[in-house]
Nucleic acid binder design. Structure first.
Lengths: 259, 259
DNA sequence: ATAGCGGAGC
DNA sequence: GCTCCGCTAT
């Protein structure tokens, strides 16, 4: 039996918006710790994961682990019919064949209830490598999105090069080449606007911009994005939210050099 | 001879937008009372009707009854070329072979004149049953539209169930089921946001959502929509405008129960 | 800025 | 007839 209440339906809406481009069907793993998801996208380029700890909910109860096999598009459709500031209650019984979603507006004059059919989904077992990374960057998520968008005008991939001097994003294509260099900076009035760069060892990797842009949709979840990188391993792109996070692992392109 | 002037072309534009999905060719009946229309859609599921009383016009003159046989799509094309706040003058002589439309902007620096060819249309005689209905609901038209849209994600039809407790919209389909319960409420600061439910006897009927959504386009005409329902007869969906209205009659689906 | 609606192309 | 793209409205 799962019963979890979010005081703002918007949270779930944004989490699902964040993953819908990458995941079609996936188990939402409910446990006494909270609700989490891990999934590879179809092309196995990206791994998506999120976690909502119990504190993310205004009430939370889950007696035993239940995997909810969800079609993300269907869930999104249902979530769209709730208002952002509705209270959202999720309910599922132990057999996990249905997910019940109840939206209540503040005045309770309108109650919408949906029942989403669930499916059996083979649990892919994914070990997320808990690597120490060579570089860690944090920056405004809007700025990261803007950079990816700008680079995508030029090419399908972007090279991210991190040194103590900062981060360089560069792309090259038919119409020309571009690069954006970001220096570390601290914004004293609003730390979410800071650009922080920790470098143990310089790293230079290239990524597919389409996927990078998918991950940028999570910007609605947090003003800050954190990037972790090490040579030859997937980048970790993480958006922290109150009592939870959404993160992506995106494999680098093989050739490090320009192609 | 008809000569009728609307101080805002937007009124006619919205009325025609309201009916265009359902009516292709139809007589606009001009009389000394005003201009009205009644038409069944091709599939005979819906009946559309509007009335613009003489007071809806800044000037109005119509010596004798003239049916103007109009192709709604063509009229819409012409109306689109006028600005919303233009003054619109409609003219037709007694033989009713042409409709003259003149758009003048406030400054009169731009005058557009169109001449629409009319057609002979067999007058279908439709008696609109002037039933007393068992339930009457009024609610914000935007909310009604929103509910219909949300339900249309789930199914092609929606069941509307009215009791003293309020109105329940429900739909069921492949991805799951949903229901929205609306309690009567009075918004003291803005009565157009109120939900009013008068129930003489509970009513439960199902309707095709595609048609329901067509009728929702009239929301641009009025912030409030009124629904009248009785068992086994068409629902009446009515949008009141100053000195007129647009309304729809939509036959219920035969089976009342879930299928 | 986002979502719905309408029009155009395949 | 269906899908995609662009425009308009909220």
């Amino acid at each position: 039996m799962l019963e979890a209440q979010l005081s703002e339906a918007a949270v779930m809406k944004r989490v699902i918006e964040s993953i819908r481009d990458l995941v079609q069907n996936c188990n939402f793993d409910c446990s006494e710790e909270g609700i989490s998801l891990q999934a590879m996208d179809d092309s196995h380029i990206a791994l998506v994961s999120f976690k909502l700890y119990t504190d993310a909910f205004s009430t939370y109860r889950c007696d035993r682990n239940i995997p909810l096999g969800i079609n993300v598009e269907s869930l999104m459709k249902v979530l769209k019919s709730g208002n952002n500031d509705d209270v959202l209650t999720l309910r599922a019984d132990d057999n996990g064949s249905n997910l019940n979603l109840i939206f209540e507006d503040a005045s309770q004059d309108r109650i919408s209830e949906y029942n989403l059919k669930l499916m059996e989904i083979e649990q892919e077992n994914m070990a997320i490598p808990d690597t120490e990374h060579k570089v860690t960057i944090s920056m405004p998520s809007s700025e990261f999105q803007r950079i990816c968008r700008d680079m995508s005008v030029l090419s399908e991939s972007v090279t991210i090069e991190v040194t103590k001097d900062g981060v360089r994003f560069s792309a090259e294509g038919d119409i020309g080449a571009g690069s954006i260099h970001l220096k570390p900076k601290t914004d004293l009035s609003d730390d979410t606007k800071s650009v922080k760069v920790q470098v143990e060892e310089p790293v230079k990797l290239s990524f597919n911009l389409k996927y990078l842009l998918f991950t940028c949709k999570s910007g609605s979840l947090s003003n800050v994005v954190t990037l972790h990188m090490s040579p030859d391993v997937p980048i970790v792109i993480k958006y922290q939210i109150p009592a939870g996070y959404v993160q992506f692992f995106l494999a680098p392109k093989i050739e490090d050099d320009e192609e």
